[in-house]
Amino acid sequence: MLELAIGIILGGCALGAGCAMIAGIGPGIGEGNAVAKACEAIGRQPESQGAVTTTMLMGCAIAETTGLYALVIAILLIFLAPGRFVNILLRSI
């Protein structure tokens, strides 16, 4: 019975980490849009390449934030959460 409970905990943590990383879709689309527009802008005005590139990198970094929140949650779920939950389970028995 205990093995089943621990298995459920591990599986739940892994599933949760996977679900959390669905958030990677958003930054992907957003950064893709940003880069596409930056390419257009450079194509239209090649002399503004430096400024456009810098601004684009900044924007990409900020758009990435939500994805990184999800990544941190996923890392916590994989590396930290199973041990904690198993400890709580063992203590409650």
Partner: peptide, 16 residues
């Protein structure tokens, strides 16, 4: 919070 997470998340995800 977002500044810390951004830097740490990028480097850590790369190494992982």
């Amino acid at each position: 919070v977002s500044m810390a997470f951004r830097h740490y998340g990028n480097i850590l995800s790369g190494s992982v």
